[in-house]
Amino acid sequence: MIFGVPLVALASQLVIGLFNGAFYALLSLGLGVIFGLLRVVNFTHGAFYTVGAFAAFLLTTRAGFSFWACLLMAPAIVALLAAVLERALLRKLYGLDALYGLLLTFGIALLIEGTLQLFFGVAGQPYQVPAILSGTSNLGFMFLPHYRAFAIGISLLICLLTWLVIEYTSLGAKLRAATENSRLLEVFGVNVPLLLTCTYAFGGALAGFAGVVAAPVFQVSPLMGANLIIVVFAVVIIGGLGSITGAIVSGLMLGTLEALAKVYWPPSANLVPFAIMAVVLFLRPRGLFGKGE
């Protein structure tokens, strides 16, 4: 018993918290990378997550592809969609007030979610957990569902890889340089317009990936992303806009705190992200990991 809560219940909630936190981290990482470079608050991000889940659902139920194939194909589909949107629409708004990008991406999200509702209704569609991950292990102090452990592990791995690429490769150095001063980088011969398209596509792919990983646990529904994205924005603000580490750490932290709130004071769980956001904004407006401007 810890503060009157059985260890088993606490440990299970912590796993659920880390599981949710992994999605927050993947999504806020993509949002953060996109905002850092494109200065666009990407409201389409939740829709990308939904599209990823639906792509996996359709690829599996209609075309017979395995979950593992979907894990690669669905993010690629979302990346392609994002690249087309960036080239055709978003590109025209660079240099204008950030509000235009926000409104455009919000509109695109409504369009995507509306289209999906037209074809699939609002009811959730089930997606099978892959057989090899369907079991549960008894760890002695708790039961650990294999799929949740897998989802946490692979999400953290993707976050870690993204962080390594951004911090330690020459491509990452170009990204960070473009975030600071993209016009000069162009003068030096770097194809910045291409870099922007790829960044937006990559951020979309991360959201699509999260969507596939979410599909077997949550129901695949047109509004799954819309419900999640608001919390993800809170995560981005808490972590600090544009901070990679901040997005990952605060994503996991928020998922965990939310889970703890569910154990100790269930009614407060949905409020926790926003209460923390308010406190962070009050004490440290640029976020926990944000750099001052």
Partner: peptide, 18 residues
């Protein structure tokens, strides 16, 4: 135009070879 968040080495390696 030095990139403040990049190290000196990263700044030196930043430009594509023309």
């Amino acid at each position: 135009g030095i990139y403040a968040s990049l190290s000196v080495q990263e700044n030196l390696d930043l430009l594509p070879k023309i």
